[in-house]
């Protein structure tokens, strides 16, 4: 696989755009907080200064969450698309998110204290994502058609949706509220102190995916050819699902389900780069995904005075038309 001069320039531009998007995001909250407050709140923190407090406890965690969520979902989406050899695959469409949602619904609405703690929710989201990832990959063995797999993913989503509704009906009002708010998606649930742990899990997922560059590049040729070129398919599939589950589980636990980012961003990135080099694609997906969610959330913050839009709603409003455009472009 070849990295051209043009690719290097594009990565360089993405690298510049991310901090710019982060700044736009930081400035878009309705209280005016200067850039110097951002720096000072990190390196020269003054507890009595309200601006420092807002920067450190609200703005920075939210900015961080937007980047992690966008980057993680996009990379996970890319891995799914390559694994299933299907540009319309994504964690949301294939029901991986629903798996995480189902397990989180269990943990919130059973009322067992450990399960409804942060760690309990993360663990459950991760297990849910992993279990549903394995289910969909077993189906992918049986059905070779791309459309069938998507339909099965959608059915998995409907099925878990029904079970979640059953849980909702039988749970009490406070649990129901917690779960409903969670399922709308939010980037403001992470606290400053949680950033190191989340970063660690995120980095494990991204670095893990970078070790998959060669297998991913081979999978582009199709499963059979990849095997004939020495790929251990079952092992690779398991690692890809595990990494996807880590990324999706982490993000879903903290931010709730966020639709379409994992589906739209990898497609946009492929069109921009015109390459299937997965080293390039993973890095670019991480950057563009981060930038995309930062800008979406900046818009949400800017509108906050007029209207409250959950992040999942906005990514769907923007993402769904992009996906339709991609399908039209494919069919033409």
């Amino acid at each position: 696989m070849i990295i051209s001069q043009r690719h290097k320039w594009m990565i360089f531009i993405f690298l510049l755009l991310l901090p710019i998007a982060a700044m736009v995001h930081f400035m878009s909250g309705h209280l005016d907080i200067s850039f110097s407050n951002l720096i000072n709140s990190l390196f020269n923190f003054d507890e009595t200064n309200t601006n420092h407090l807002i920067a450190r406890e609200v703005r920075i965690p939210r900015m961080f969450t937007a980047i992690i969520a966008g980057a993680g979902l996009s990379v996970a989406g890319l891995l799914m698309q390559t694994l299933f050899n299907n540009p319309l695959a994504g964690p949301y469409v294939l029901g991986i998110n629903s798996g995480a949602s189902l397990f989180v619904a269990f943990s919130i609405m059973t009322g067992i204290p450990f399960l409804s703690s942060d760690l309990g929710i993360i663990t459950n989201a991760l297990i849910g994502a992993m279990v549903f990832g394995l289910i969909i990959s077993l189906f992918s063995e049986v059905v070779r058609s791309q459309i069938s797999l998507l339909l099965i993913g959608i059915m998995l989503g409907s099925f878990t949706g029904a079970i979640v509704s059953m849980l909702e009906v039988s749970s009490d009002a406070s649990e129901l509220k917690v779960f409903t708010l969670w399922s709308l998606g939010s980037l403001s649930r992470i606290e400053f102190g949680q950033i190191p742990l989340i970063s660690l899990v995120f980095v494990v997922g991204i670095v893990g995916s970078l070790f998959l560059i060669k297998p991913l590049n081979l999978l582009i040729l199709g499963q059979d050819q990849a095997r004939l070129l020495g790929l251990n398919y079952k092992r690779t599939r398991f690692i890809i699902i595990a990494i996807t589950a880590i990324l999706i589980g982490l993000i879903t636990a903290f931010c709730g389900p966020i639709a379409f980012v994992g589906l739209a961003v990898p497609n946009l990135v492929r069109i921009m780069l015109k390459s299937q080099h997965h080293g390039l694609l993973i890095v670019s997906c991480a950057f563009i995904g981060g930038i995309f969610v930062l800008l979406c959330d900046a818009l949400i913050q800017a509108m906050e005075n007029y209207m409250l839009i959950p992040i999942n709603v906005l990514t769907s409003i923007i993402g769904a038309p992009i996906v339709v455009l991609l399908i039209l472009r494919k069919l033409r």
Partner: peptide, 18 residues
């Protein structure tokens, strides 16, 4: 194989994967 954005040289270089 049906693939987008794979140049012939890149496809041929997959033969070196082993």
């Amino acid at each position: 194989p049906q693939m987008d954005y794979v140049r012939s040289r890149e496809f041929i270089s997959a033969g070196r994967a082993p």
